[in-house]
Design a protein around this nucleic acid. Sequence first.
DNA 1: TTGCAATTGAGAATCATTTGCAATTAAAGG
DNA 2: CCTTTAATTGCAAATGATTCTCAATTGCAA
Lengths: 165, 165
Amino acid sequence: MTIYEERFSGYLKEKKLKLTPERHIILDGIFSFHRHFDVEELYERLRKNGEKLSRATIYRAIPLFIESGFIKEILHCRGKASYEHVFGHEHHDHLLCIKCGRIIEFKDDKIEELQDKVCKRYGFKPVEHRLGIRGYCKRCIAIAKIGGGIYGLNTIRNRRKSRNC
Amino acid sequence: MTIYEERFSGYLKEKKLKLTPERHIILDGIFSFHRHFDVEELYERLRKNGEKLSRATIYRAIPLFIESGFIKEILHCRGKASYEHVFGHEHHDHLLCIKCGRIIEFKDDKIEELQDKVCKRYGFKPVEHRLGIRGYCKRCIAIAKIGGGIYGLNTIRNRRKSRNC
DNA sequence: TTGCAATTGAGAATCATTTGCAATTAAAGG
DNA sequence: CCTTTAATTGCAAATGATTCTCAATTGCAA
Ligand SMILES: [Mn+2]
Ligand SMILES: [Mn+2]
Ligand SMILES: [Zn+2]
Ligand SMILES: [Zn+2]
């Protein structure tokens, strides 16, 4: 039994929930892949793997994995939620390229520290946070000399369609 | 003509877009209200005000207001986008209470500065950022001694229903 | 005033996510 | 191992926010 399985079954027991084969499959699916994912991707990956289970089951399992501290939701992208590991992965924040969709992860201890200070100042007890910086990645800046007036870099229509995050 | 109207019509002209009565109504609606809002709220506010226009028109206008720097999208909340002023309002980030939904705005220059540093480190050209810290506000901490085991403060079912942000 | 691309409203279409329901099953207790 | 029962599942229908289609209208540059 992996450390994941052990922790998950402990969580389920504490909540009087059942460790079903489906949940097992989903757990394995989540930890056999180390990138950001969304429900549809996970579903298709499991299917290709020959597993049979429905989207609804995955949707219903996601909150369990969040509550038990395995994954967390990251920035919504075009109305769709994505997730990433928490368990076994250090916390980090994201740079999001609005041109190509590339996601760069970073961690800045000083920023984290200052966030705590802000919370203290307001008597706020933080549970989690998300910091996403949207802009243009190195490669996209290099590829195209981006023109445009004071009003932005894309037309509205283009921005709509290409809104990567 | 207000400064808003002037700036907006300038933007529209530059983009060869039209200053329609509907867009005018929406612009006024946005600037007659100084809090976070979503499309539905804006729609109903305008309706109550006797204005006649369709949701679709608002949805279509939102990207214009974003591009012209009047508003920006803030954290998605339950799959629904919210917006807040940018023009005439200083940038800030948010503390979000996951118990009562309260939103506390804050600004920390040092954090902003460090974000720029991070971007430089990655050759990334930032356009905007969002920092949201989710947790429990002062009042909620006071009201309820929040119990719970190591796995979190709400049950899954409750969390689903009460997920304020 | 004209010409035409941009815009609008209404409703249909999308798309991610949630939910109702009947059948199934994990797992606690004997 | 058997019983009991609440939890779980799959499927399809329901939701809800947002986008799109299309015919009718209109701003505005010339
Ligand atoms: Mn990440
Ligand atoms: Mn705000
Ligand atoms: Zn890029
Ligand atoms: Zn609160």
